[in-house]
Design a protein around this nucleic acid. Structure first.
Lengths: 241, 241
DNA sequence: CGTGTCCTTGATAATGCTCAAGGAGCGTGG
DNA sequence: CCACGCTCCTTGAGCATTATCAAGGACACG
């Protein structure tokens, strides 16, 4: 074994973490290689298929995760079965409600999802020891709150057409956060029913509004899931600014 | 001057802070008397009347505040004037978006409001020096996120009747957080128009639903603003659990 | 080739919105 | 003290948007 590597203060970044986005844009960016190594000893990486429940609405959570790839939907359900998706999470978001075992939302993989999971206790210990880590989580939570409030405007005040356009815009920008051009092509990470549950509409209304956008040449649809937007600014107009 | 007081390590709690709820349930609970004293030197306390704008939607903020009493509404507006209230804040909530000068919501006093304001720089310095303070703010932000997501379910999936009942329940529980009995009486902190903007409805629909609840004897209304709920569980049923 | 899932489209119904009129409370000024 | 003007709220009638119910199309998989 390479002695030099072992001896330097900044020990080597764990292999698993090297190509991980969480180390750059996510919460692990707050950790030194030493700490990363310590945490990685307790972490398990796994891929789950679309539809898997990652966190139950009233289940006690025993672990937290970083999303490595894929899309996770957070949802709430009423006693009679009505459902509302209250947020989408993308890599490299941190998944889980800190400081509380029960969080009132369920998390389900919307696409195939790769996660890196840690035991609750390990994370909580590191949070209490490292203000930098807590700060990162705080920043993410503030961003989620901003997004939740944006979406409240969409849910409460936009028309069906504006809602669907807003959703497409949301996916387009999150799928390609640093897209500079005015056109994008992407796969929708969710079914019509899921989109409806996110927008507070029915599946039929979502379908009709997508058809309308297609007929007005704002979007092109191939194979139900595959969408291309030739001019983002035209879509943006439809979203009601 | 009393020398003993001056010399003890834990100096005296500032007069202004003594009866303040923020010191117990709010963010100031994270501060020692020494730190409180330091902060209180920069703080200004003032009362503003209902309707005053405390934070502009795209204005750069120069100060943060603790709400001492009253209700603050956070809202977003679309270019064409459609408005959505995205949150209500009560004493002893902290008002302001940390780490960003522009926060995308405007804050307006819904009732007469008393606030204790601090310069942005002073708070940010204390946050960076005191993990405990940041932790308190983080906890409040998480609670706000939970509430925002609860409200998303209300906005997206509940009927007009359920929305109005949910609103009354929200006010009843926040006005008297430790009420044990099954009946409550309170004043609504906002107009019908504001309630409509919070629920994603029109003023007329809110009015009709209130009338319906009154005719069904779920609530009693005196003088438009004054409401009494004889049986909270019956109201809760109307809110769709 | 059948069966299943997901999506689209159509016809009809219902919920909530728009427009309109009028009532209640309140401060102001005659 | 009362009339007025004002704001806020209620109520009604008709309408628009979206939901519901139903049928059928596209595609995948056995």
């Amino acid at each position: 074994m390479d002695i030099q590597r072992k001896d330097v203060h900044n020990s080597e970044t764990p292999v698993l973490c090297r190509a991980c986005e969480s180390r750059h844009r996510g919460v692990c960016g707050a950790l030194t290689p030493d700490q990363l190594l310590q945490l990685s000893r307790h972490s398990t990486r796994r891929a789950v298929e679309s539809g898997t429940e990652l966190v139950g609405e009233s289940l006690k959570t025993t672990s937290y995760s970083n999303i490595i790839s894929g899309v996770v939907k957070l949802s709430k359900m009423m006693a009679d079965g009505r459902q509302q998706i209250v947020g989408l999470q993308f890599a490299p978001d941190f998944l889980g409600r800190p400081f509380r075992s029960e969080n009132g939302v369920s998390a389900e993989a919307a696409t195939e999802v790769k996660v890196c999971s840690f035991p609750k206790a390990a994370i909580e210990r590191m949070i209490s020891e490292m203000p930098e880590l807590e700060h990162k989580l705080f920043e993410q939570t503030l961003a989620e709150l901003d997004e939740a409030r944006d979406w409240m405007l969409t849910l409460g005040r936009k028309t069906a057409g504006e809602k669907v356009a807003s959703f497409l815009l949301l996916i387009a920008t999150h799928a390609f956060p640093d897209n500079e051009s005015d056109s994008v092509t992407f796969d929708l990470p969710m079914s019509r029913t899921d989109i409806a549950d996110f927008l507070g509409l029915t599946m039929e209304t979502v379908s009709r509004q997508l058809t309308k956008l297609r007929k007005d040449d704002v979007i092109h649809i191939l194979n139900n899931r595959h969408v291309s937007v030739p001019d983002l600014s035209r879509l943006s107009e439809r979203a009601g600014s």
